[in-house]
């Protein structure tokens, strides 16, 4: 039977991704050039010239909905961004046991994960970009609430041909991590382990870039890599392919992503496809995103 949980690891809604571009890049942190970067390495916000806003919506399996919104603006003392993200599932059966020892539905309830994130980024001449972000996580379902706070820091160094991203998710977190408080006053803890991530991106002239990323979570080492090609040596059309490792229930899984981007003047559209294995009804996830500058 299920027993007392001592070592569950908190899984943030952010793990689903923040944009099609993010997914196409094998979920590499810190490559975003829109306000979606608020949810990633905040030092990557250096790519935004003045202001940015982003919206994201996803629906999986006709069951899970994800939404986020972020906005950021460059102020005299640095770039400040704020983002909100939520994931929800509706109509979950609350169950009981009848006289025949069979389960039945008492009523129905909804589930919601949410986070709000505040990010700050600043530049230091000839040193690089630094960022810090504070995230408040919350979870609500059936009269039970959970919450936790994590602090992330990041650094990005750029040169014309090379870019380095260093990111520490949950450098600080609330004691106990994600803390669930039940109606009877008891609590459950989900750890929010430190997740250091190092990424490198090498630009191959006007033809694109290759990138690689390493993340450590608990005792696990996760790698990902991505290739972006501009077939006509401009940003108008971009093709992406990537491979990534990620944790599923304390096991390392592999994922493959691909994508295409089209940028015409201030309008950019992104499409990403992520292979989904071992599901009898779905073979992949499709992501579409649109961005524009003004």
């Amino acid at each position: 039977m299920m027993g007392v949980c001592h070592a569950a690891t908190f899984e943030s809604a952010l793990m689903v991704g923040t944009s099609a571009d993010f997914v196409a890049n094998a979920s590499m942190i810190g490559l975003s050039s829109s306000a979606a970067g608020v949810f990633e390495n905040p030092a990557g916000l250096v790519r935004i010239k003045s202001g940015s806003a982003s919206l994201f919506s996803a629906s999986f399996m006709n069951e899970v909905t994800y939404q986020n919104a972020a906005v950021g603006v460059l102020l005299p003392f640095g770039f400040v961004g704020v983002g909100y993200m939520e994931a929800g599932v509706s109509n979950i059966p609350n169950t009981g046991v009848n006289a025949g020892n069979e389960f039945f539905v008492r009523d129905w309830y909804d589930y919601k994960d949410a986070l709000i994130r505040l990010a700050y980024q600043t530049n230091m001449e000839q040193v690089g970009s630094f960022g810090v972000a504070v995230t408040h996580y919350s979870r609500n379902a059936f009269k039970t609430k959970a919450s936790g706070v994590g602090v992330d820091v990041g650094y990005v160094w750029q040169s014309p041909s090379l870019e380095c991203s260093v990111f520490f998710r949950h450098l600080l977190s609330t004691q106990g991590g994600m803390v669930t408080t039940y109606e009877n006053g008891s609590t459950r803890f989900e750890s929010m382990p430190l997740e250091p991530t190092v990424g490198l991106r090498y630009f191959v002239g006007p033809w694109g870039f290759v990138g690689a990323q390493y993340t450590a979570i608990d005792r696990y080492s996760l790698w990902s890599g991505t290739v972006r090609v501009y077939p006509i040596a401009s940003n108008i059309v971009a093709l992406n392919a990537g491979v990534k490792q990620f944790l599923v229930d304390q096991k390392i899984s592999q994922g493959f992503t691909m994508g295409v981007s089209l940028e015409l003047m201030t309008l950019a559209t992104h499409y990403a496809y992520e292979v989904l294995e071992d599901h009898p009804e779905y073979n992949g996830k499709h992501y579409v995103s649109v961005s524009f500058d003004f």
Binding site: S33, K285, V288, D293
Partner: peptide
Amino acid sequence: MVHAQMSVASASFTSIQSK
């Protein structure tokens, strides 16, 4: 010059077949 960006993203699953 004010430079701002807006992006909208969505995602969905593809159903192979209803079995």
